[in-house]
């Protein structure tokens, strides 16, 4: 492979990994307060739809992002009310959210398509212009590095900033310590005067907002501004699994998501005709590796494991 091709591959990996950056950081925030949210795929789908449609209607990229975040938050609110307040089973609620979210997103998509001119939905020129790669004078012109580090669309940088902020929030602040205690031992947190319910909601809603933006990336960037159904297409699921790969640390998500991004685009960069590997294999690769990561992670048992001890368990104060 020529060096030019390698740079192209790396850039493509970053772009392909960005949905995971959002989805996984979002899921970590939720899991840290003890809520396993299997609805990431659904929240992303809803965000994908809301972001795209808002951009399509309003001509504004910023409004699109805000709409995606708001829609994700709303979806998370449904999950939160059901699991935190009504203490519904988290797995069932999350799965339902995924089915509902994908369905709703496609439904709205079809509705809008039927009303569009020419039977396609395409983002207006103004929006695509705003989400084009940011050109940083000076930095972006550096050979190789400029292309590798400073030539992405605003989503990528936003994702990185969110990951770093989430890492600081969880691991460097007193609030983060309190929040982590909720996922580890809600009874202890409660006894320590931490408002368990409040912080569960805050984290779940934040998680929804971040996932929503990740969804908007899928519908707006991946398909070059054209609406296609199922634009999230399973990326939310990989995000959930990536949480384990990142051992619940948002900073680790940064490289984790790019590794999985690389797996997604690998098929375009493997020299043709060298090996007779069907492309279907490459399509399946991220999922295969995900399964592998899960197996390895569950084999490695230790007291120091990073999984929140009360993940998936609702908390009822008066339960004895």
């Amino acid at each position: 492979m020529s060096s030019e091709l390698i740079i192209k591959f790396l850039v493509a990996a970053v772009l392909a990994g960005t949905p995971f950056l959002f989805g996984t950081v979002g899921e970590i925030l939720s899991e840290k307060v003890g809520h396993l949210n299997l609805g990431v795929e659904g929240m992303m789908a809803i965000g994908a739809c809301a972001g795209f449609m808002a951009g399509y209607v309003t001509d504004s990229f910023v409004i699109a992002i805000l709409a995606a975040a708001a829609a994700g938050t709303l979806a998370a609110l449904i999950y939160g009310v059901l699991t935190v307040t009504f203490m519904a089973n988290q797995n069932v609620t999350g799965l339902t959210m995924t089915i509902f979210g994908t369905g709703l997103s496609n439904f709205v998509g079809v509705y809008m398509l039927e009303r569009s001119e020419g039977g396609t939905l395409k983002l207006p020129e103004r929006v695509t212009a705003q989400m084009r790669n940011i050109d940083i004078p000076g930095l972006s012109d550096i050979p190789v590095l400029g292309e590798l580090l400073f030539s992405y669309n605003p989503f990528v940088y936003l994702g990185l900033v969110i990951a770093v902020l989430a890492g600081i929030y969880l691991y460097k602040t007193q609030t983060g310590l309190n929040v982590q205690a909720i996922g580890e031992n809600p009874a202890a947190a409660d006894a320590a005067g931490i408002e368990v319910t409040k912080w569960r909601y805050i984290n779940i809603l934040l998680s929804g907002a971040i996932c929503g933006i990740g969804g908007a990336y899928c519908s707006m960037i991946i398909n070059s501004g054209v609406w296609l159904r199922d634009s999230v297409g399973g990326l939310g699921w990989i995000s959930v699994a990536l949480v384990i790969f990142a051992s619940w640390k948002p900073i680790n998500v940064i490289y984790g998501s790019f590794v999985f991004g690389a797996l997604r685009v690998l098929k375009y960069y493997v020299p043709k005709n060298t090996y007779a590997i069907p492309t279907a294999f490459f399509d399946a690769l991220p999922f295969l590796i995900t399964a592998l990561v899960l197996v390895i992670a569950s084999m490695r048992k230790s007291k120091r494991s990073h999984i929140p001890a009360h993940l998936g368990v609702n908390y009822f104060r008066e339960e004895r």
Binding site: K172, T173, Q174, T175, L177, N178, Q180, A181, E184, N185, A187, A188, A189, A191, A192, G193, I194, K303, R304, A309
Partner: peptide, 27 residues
């Protein structure tokens, strides 16, 4: 201050982190 029969401690935290748990403001 109540010391429960079943300790209300976060296993993966240090003693220190458990002691300051629930406080607000700067760490």
């Amino acid at each position: 201050g109540m010391i429960h029969q079943h300790f209300k401690l976060v296993d993966v935290f240090s003693a220190m982190d458990n002691i300051i748990l629930g406080s607000h403001g700067r760490r």
